[in-house]
Nucleic acid binder design. Structure first.
Lengths: 205, 205
DNA sequence: ATTTTTGTTAACCATTTGGTTAAATCGTAT
DNA sequence: ATACGATTTAACCAAATGGTTAACAAAAAT
C-alpha cells in the first residue's frame, strides 16, 4: 500500500497508486478496487477525484508519455554536433528510464493496443517528433566525410533500440543472465557510455 | 472473423482466433466472447475445447514463446565464427518476426506482468538459454585480437535490441516516420544486412 | 437401423467490476 | 456553537464476463 506521507494530498496518493497498478497490469488488467486498496482509500473516492477509469488512466498514461517522448524529440531538435547529441541522449535518457524502468513497456504496449488513441491524445497539439533536422545533420556529416554512409533511419532505430530495449526486456535479461536489481542498474549505468562508444566506433571513418 | 478454410479443424480455427485476440488485447483485455465471435462459433464451444481462458491462453502464449526463444538460444549454441553467427541470427530472426510482428511485444509484456509464470511454464524443462558459450567465444576473439575489447553482455544486448525493438515500437515508428506496412517491411528487410554491418563495423579491429 | 460418442448451441448462473447514491465526517468561516 | 462546503465512506446497482447445463445435431461404431 502506498503510504500517505505527510503533506501528500489525497489526489497525489491516488495518482501514485494508479500509476503503480496501471503500469504493472495495464489498462485492461488494472482494477479500480486494486487502485483504491493500493491508495488505502475507498473505491468511491477514486470516482470523486477522477470521474472514471478511462479518465484516471489518461492522466497516468499522458504523464508517462510526456516523460518519455520529449527527450527523444530533443535529439532531433538540439543544435549540437552529432556525436555529442548521441552521447547526451544516452546519458539523459537512461537516467530518466532508470527511475521508471517499466514505463517504456507500459507505454509501447498501450500504444500498440490502440494506436489511434495515442495519436489523438499525445500528439494532438504537442510537438510531434520531426526527424527532418536529424536526417539533414546526418547527410551533412556524411558529405563532410566525418562518418560513413548510413541510412539515418537505421541509425535512429539502432540508437533508440539499444537505449530502450533492455528496459523492455528487463525481466527476461534478469532471469536469463541471473542479474539482480543492483546488477541491472550497474549494467544500465555502463550503457550510458557503452552505447555511444559502440555507435561512434561503427560510423566514424 | 477467421474464415474456416476447408480441412481446417475447429480447434485450429479457435487457436487462430485466440491468437489474434490475445496478441492484440493481451490476456487481461481479451474476452472469451471476442474469441468466439472471431472464430465464428459459440462461446461454450471454447470451453469444450479448452477448459478455460487460462488454459487457452497458455497454449497461445507457449506457442508464441516457442517461436521466439529457441532461435535466440541458437546463437549461443551454434558452432560457427562469431561474425557469421551474428549475420545468421539477424537474417533468420527478422524473417521469423516479420511473419509475426506483434509476438515480441505480446510475449515480453506478459512476461513482465508475471515473470514467475513464464519462468515456470516456458523454461520449466525446456532449454533455458545458456550464454556461457557465447561469452567464451567473445573472449577468444578478443584474445585473438580479431575484435575490440567489449563486454559480451552489452554486445548481446545490442544485438537483441536492434533486432527486436523495431517490432516492439512498430506503431510508433510507423506513425512517426510516416511508414506504411510495405515500407516497414522493406526497412526490416534492410536491417537483416544493416545490423550485422553496423555491429561488425563497430567491433572489428 | 440404432446405439453411442463427439461436436455444437441457446439459455442460464455466479462473480467480478465499473460506477452511483445517500449518508456521515471533517474543516473552516461566520 | 453552527452552518456550510469539501471530503470520505458503506451500501447498492447494472452491466459485463467467465463459466456451466441440458438439450440437440452429426458422425461413428455396433
Amino acid at each position: 500500500m502506498v503510504k500517505k506521507q505527510k503533506d501528500q494530498t489525497t489526489e497525489q496518493v491516488i495518482l501514485a497508486a494508479a500509476k503503480k497498478v496501471f503500469v504493472q497490469k495495464g489498462m485492461a488488467g488494472a482494477r479500480m478496487q486494486d487502485i483504491a486498496d493500493e491508495a488505502g482509500i475507498n473505491k468511491a473516492l477514486l470516482h470523486y477525484y477522477f470521474r472514471n477509469k478511462e479518465k484516471l488512466f489518461e492522466v497516468i498514461f499522458l504523464e508517462a508519455a510526456e516523460k518519455l517522448f520529449p527527450k527523444i524529440n530533443a535529439i532531433f531538435e538540439a543544435d549540437r554536433p552529432l556525436f555529442e547529441k548521441i552521447e547526451n541522449f544516452c546519458d539523459e535518457y537512461i537516467s530518466i528510464v532508470m527511475d521508471n524502468p517499466y514505463l517504456p513497456l507500459f507505454v509501447l504496449n498501450e500504444i500498440n493496443q490502440d494506436p489511434e488513441y495515442f495519436l489523438k491524445k499525445v500528439w494532438a497539439g504537442k510537438a510531434k517528433p520531426n526527424p527532418v533536422k536529424f536526417l539533414e545533420q546526418m547527410e551533412k556529416e556524411v558529405k563532410k566525410g566525418t562518418i560513413k554512409k548510413i541510412n539515418p533511419m537505421h541509425l535512429l532505430m539502432n540508437l533508440l533500440s539499444m537505449t530502450i530495449f533492455p528496459f523492455i526486456a528487463k525481466p527476461m535479461f534478469q532471469k536469463n543472465l541471473g542479474m539482480g536489481e543492483a546488477q541491472f542498474r550497474i549494467a544500465m549505468e555502463e550503457r550510458k557510455k557503452e552505447i555511444p562508444r559502440f555507435i561512434i566506433d561503427s560510423i566514424k571513418k
